[in-house]
Design a protein around this nucleic acid. Sequence first.
DNA 1: GTCCATGTTCTTTA
DNA 2: CTAAAGAACATGGA
Length: 277
Amino acid sequence: MPELPEVQTIVSTLQPVVVGTAIKKVELFRREIVHLEKSTAAEPFDLAAQLVGRQITALTRRGKRIIFTLKDGAQFYIHLGMTGRLIAQHKPIEPVKHTHLRLMLSNGKLLDFIDPRRFGGVWWLGQDARPDGDLGPEPLTLRSAELYQSLAKTHRAVKSALLDQHVIAGLGNIYVDEALFAASIHPATLSDTLSLEQTAALLRAIKSTLNSAIKHRGSSVHDYRDGNNEAGVFQTLHKVYNRKGQPCLRCGTPLQRIVLGGRGTCFCPKCQPEPNS
DNA sequence: GTCCATGTTCTTTA
DNA sequence: CTAAAGAACATGGA
């Protein structure tokens, strides 16, 4: 599941490969993965016509989005969904199954977007649309007073609020569970009942979890690979995610699994006690 | 063959 | 009307 640390690792590994190159050729194997941010344009959108011949001047991340900036300021982004990969091919090879888009670059490298489940895709923004108008703040630079305010505005399980990209951008199922454990907060705690102190502790836990995951090049649970097709190692350091029934690494109590907001949720019933309400 | 994994969007419910 | 909860999507693996 590519979340913020995985997307950051992909961007970091791809920057030296793609920034400064021009797009020589575009192979689009599946038209449906291309979207226009807004607009009901009746005429079919020609991604290749927009991209070919243009230089990539920047590759950045916002939330879980990988943002390409072109020389004239036009932008598009790739979202990896659940199973997406964005991989630089350093030698010419045949595209694998589920390769939906291939960019051929002026330095001879290929950039493949591969996504079996097709929850991901490419969003063309052009020169006017912003890549993140609908996203909440970045967790790594967020301040606790701001998070406290936005959590107070919504009455639902804190886990559901943290998964909401409008509230905070970049967290997914793995890092929300890990951060809630690190902060000793039960995932079903109602978001508007957290104190400022608890919120500050939660944000510290989010930041340290994400920074550690970035340092370990992300979590390769199922499909994730970085831009050079290499796995991350943070999955070996998960304390609760996917560890149902195994002993809590802090107190030894068997970890529990519940379904919250339709998502599997692992936590320690002793370290993260249910809030009495 | 059934069920489950999950990010986002769409639909339904309260 | 709003907010929250739930379903749907797609495919491979258990």
